[in-house]
Structures are given as C-alpha cells and as structure tokens.
Amino acid sequence: MQSDAELVNACLNGEKEAFSILIRRYQRPVRAVALDVVRDYHLAADVSQNAFVAAYRNLPALRKAEAFGPWLMKITRRCALDLLQRKSRESPLEAASACGIESPDGQLDEDKQRLLAAVLQLPEAEKQVVMLRYFSAQNVKDVADTIGRSVGTVTKQLSRAHKRLRKMLPEMEAKQ
C-alpha cells in the first residue's frame, strides 16, 4: 500500500491517478470534517469536492508530503467555512439555521453527532488515524502504511484516541 507521501509525490510528478487514490482514501474523513461544519450531507458533498480540487491545485505548496492528511482536513474546514459564509450571503435564513446534522434520511442522532464532534476535536495525529481506521475502514497496517508510521505507533495513537474519546464524550454530554 502506498503511503500518502508516495502518492503526493506521484501526483507532483504528473501521475494524476495517484490523486484519485488519495480521494478514495480520504473521502469519508473529508466529508466528516465538512459535515461537522455545514451540518448537511449534500452540502458536505459539495464542500468535499471543493476541498479535493483545492488540495490538488495547491499540492505543490505542501511542504511535507507525509502531512497530506492533516493538511487536507484544514483545507476542507476552510472550504466548509467559505461555503457556509457564501451560502449565508445567498440565503442567510437557511445557512444560519443549521443546528443538527441533516442527512437525506433525517437528522443524525445526538450520540453520533457528539461522537463526530469529539473525533474532530482530537489532536491531529490521533484524529487522522481514527478517521482512516473507522471512517475509511482501513486496518491498522494500512493506516500505518498510509501515514508512513509503524503499526506500533498507530496502535498507540488509536489507544490514546480511544481513551481521550471516552473521557470527552461524557463531558460533552453533560455540557449539553
């Protein structure tokens, strides 16, 4: 399995197909970040597209190829905020009224919304491995290959993330 860094470098060498692998790999994490901001599945799809296109265009500016994942998440968040702002100008009523996360099948239940918010509050490294592991459905080895770290490191990061999430979730629930 090629690491992010290898795929990024391949893209920079003109192998555009490598980028489609990155899209497949990060499609769900990117949508999750977008969803957290725009609170709507369809809008999150728009944002995700914009984020990937923006990432592709700005790939030469990425200083550390291995940091592609966190970098992409930042771009996604920026795109989501931009869209939200643009949308607010066009239709403030709609944009500003967001509360729960809307999916085509209704609203995401509160537990899941809280869990998503908690994941997105994790430290960058932990967030990346959690998203790749559970959202992109990669096994631990693939996650390790993706981010160019050892299996042991990823396992530790996941473990720390679990611990942190277990601590965060009741606190978040209590706040609500």
Partner: peptide, 30 residues
C-alpha cells in the same frame, strides 16, 4: 466505542462517482 465509530463511519457516504466527479473537475481545471 469501536462499534460506534465504525457505525458513524458508515453513515458518511462514500462512492466512486464522487471520486470520478472530483477527477473530472480536476481534469477540467487542468
């Protein structure tokens, strides 16, 4: 917790058409 995370992940859509559409946009932009 793992189950919840996996379940959440499954609620986030992912499909090949999305990849295709992004790549089309990238092609067009190029």
């Amino acid at each position: 917790l793992e189950e919840k995370l996996q379940s959440l992940g499954q609620l986030i859509p992912s499909d090949d058409l999305f990849v295709e559409s992004v790549m089309c946009r990238i092609d067009a932009a190029d």
